[in-house]
Design a protein around this nucleic acid. Structure first.
Lengths: 254, 254
DNA sequence: ACCTGAACACCGTTCAAGT
DNA sequence: ACCTGAACACCGTTCAAGT
C-alpha cells in the first residue's frame, strides 16, 4: 500500500489555490473543469482512484462542492464518458459526414481508436456504461455522431436496414477490438495496487505444451495490423450488404 | 431509493441457518459455495450489490469469515469470472477439441453466448477484468480452452500465426458482440437504483430527423441474426487466411 | 481450524450553516 | 449563489479473541 503521492499540490500545507489555467482568471468550479480533472485522475491513477473526495482535493475544493455542479458519482461517470467520446469533434481527421462511406468508416474507426489509446483507463467505462437508450451503442454513443453515421451511409446508397445493421456491426467491432487492445497494454480496471496479478506460472503452462510453444507469439502485439485487417474485412462485408440492397434472399411469398 | 427487499430470508429475524443444499449435510463455508453465492447475487441484483457483508449474510456468516477462503474482494471477482467462464466445461454441446475447425468455432461461440446471456450482469466483468497474462484475452480466458482452441486449429491446417491471429480475432468478435448484446437487454453495470437513466428526450431527437426516423429500426433486437452473420463472416475470413497459409504477400527480400 | 466482534480508514451523500 | 463542516450509513480489511 505505498501511496507515493506524486508531487502535486498537497505535500506542504499550502494555501488553497486551485490549479487554474495560467491566463484564465477564474478558478471557479464548473462542470467542465470537474469532468476534466476527473479524466486526468483516471488517466493517471485508474478508475478506482476517482473518488469524490480525491476529485475535490484535486480541484482545491471540498468534495461536497462538486454536488452543486454534478448530481452524484453516477452522473459524474456519465459525464466523463460523454467528454471523452466528444473528443471526436476536436479531431481534424474525422468528419461528421462524408460522401465516401468506406473512407468515412476508416476515419471514424481510427478517430475512436486514438481516443481509446489516449485514455486506456477510461475506455472500459465507455464500453460498459449503460447508455441513454438501448439502441445507442458504445463507443459511438452520441446522438450527433449516430445521425452523421446513418446520414453518410444512406447518402451512399445503403438501405435503412443496411445502414442500421452497419451501425451495430461497426460498434461491435470497435468495442471488441479496442477493449482488448487497451486491456492488453495494462489498462487496469481499478488501481495498480497489485504488483503481480498472478501471471500464469511456468508450472501451469507445463500442462499445455502447445500453449507454451505459442505463448511468445500470442504475446506479440499485432493490434495495429489486426485493427486494419478486421476493419477492412468489415468494410468489404458491408459493401456486399449494400450491393445486396433491398434484395431479400429469394421469393418468400407463395 | 425504494429497496423492496425481495422476499428472501432476511425479513423476520430468523435463526442463522445458511441455505444449504437439502440433501447435502454440510453448510460449511468453502470457496465453491462462496463463488456460487456471489454469482447468484450479481445475477439477481447486479455487480454493485455484491458486498463482502451482503455476501456473508447470504451465506449465513459474518463478512470476515469469507477472508479465510478468499484473500479479498479482488480475488473474489477473479474467482467469479473463472467460475462463470468454466461453465463451458459443463456444456454438452461444446467440445474441447475437434477435427472440424469451422464447426468447432460455431460450437464455442454459441457456448460462450449462452453463458453471457445466462449471466448478463457478470459478463462485463468477464470482458473487462485484467487477465493473468496480457496474451490471455477475454472471454476465452482459461488456459485449457486456449490450448484446445490452438490445438484444433493447428490440427486443421492453420499455421501458428494463423491460429494465434484467429484466437485474437475470435475473442474480439465475442467480446464486442456479446458485451453490446447483454447491455442492450438491460444489463446494468451497477444497481438498478436509477428508475429512468435519462433516455433521449423527444426534443433531443427532434434535432436529428433521420435518427428519429430510424430509431425504431435501431431499437429492433437483431442480435441473434447479427451474431450468426458476423460469426459466419469471421469464419470465412479465417478460412481465407488459412488457405493463404504461410504464403506472405510476395517477395520481401531484395 | 474456523468464525466472530470490535475497530480503522475510507467511501458517497445529506443538510444545516456559513460567506 | 456557492462552498464548508459535521454527520450518517455504508464500505473493505485488520486483528485479537473466542470456540
Amino acid at each position: 500500500m505505498q501511496d507515493p503521492d506524486t508531487p502535486h499540490a498537497r505535500g506542504a500545507a499550502a494555501a488553497v489555490i486551485p490549479a487554474a489555467a495560467p491566463g484564465e482568471g477564474s478558478p471557479r468550479l464548473d462542470r467542465r473543469r470537474i469532468l476534466g480533472s476527473a479524466v486526468e485522475i483516471i488517466d493517471r491513477d485508474g478508475l478506482r482512484a476517482l473518488t469524490m473526495r480525491r476529485l475535490g482535493a484535486h480541484l482545491g475544493v471540498e468534495a461536497m462542492a462538486i454536488y452543486h455542479h454534478v448530481p452524484g458519482r453516477e452522473a459524474l461517470l456519465d459525464g466523463i464518458v460523454e467528454v471523452v467520446v466528444d473528443e471526436l469533434y476536436g479531431d481534424p481527421e474525422v468528419h461528421l459526414v462524408s460522401s465516401d462511406w468506406a473512407r468515412y468508416l476508416h476515419e471514424l474507426a481510427h478517430g475512436v481508436r486514438r481516443i481509446a489509446l489516449a485514455h486506456p483507463q477510461v475506455f472500459p467505462l465507455v464500453a460498459t456504461r449503460p447508455s441513454a437508450a438501448t439502441w445507442v451503442r458504445p463507443p459511438l454513443r452520441s446522438l450527433r455522431w449516430i445521425d452523421g453515421f446513418l446520414l453518410t451511409l444512406r447518402q451512399c446508397g445503403f438501405s435503412d436496414r443496411a445502414a442500421t445493421d452497419a451501425y451495430q456491426a461497426f460498434n461491435s467491432f470497435l468495442v471488441g477490438h479496442l477493449l482488448l487492445e487497451v486491456s492488453q497494454q495494462g489498462a487496469d480496471i481499478g488501481p495498480v495496487d497489485d504488483p503481480d496479478p498472478g501471471k500464469p506460472r511456468r508450472s501451469d503452462l507445463a500442462d499445455y505444451p502447445l500453449l507454451a510453444e505459442l505463448a511468445p507469439q500470442l504475446a506479440q502485439d499485432r493490434s495495429a495490423e489486426e485493427f486494419e485487417e478486421t476493419l477492412q474485412a468489415l468494410i468489404e462485408r458491408l459493401a456486399a450488404d449494400r450491393a445486396a440492397g433491398s434484395t431479400p434472399a429469394g421469393p418468400a411469398i407463395g
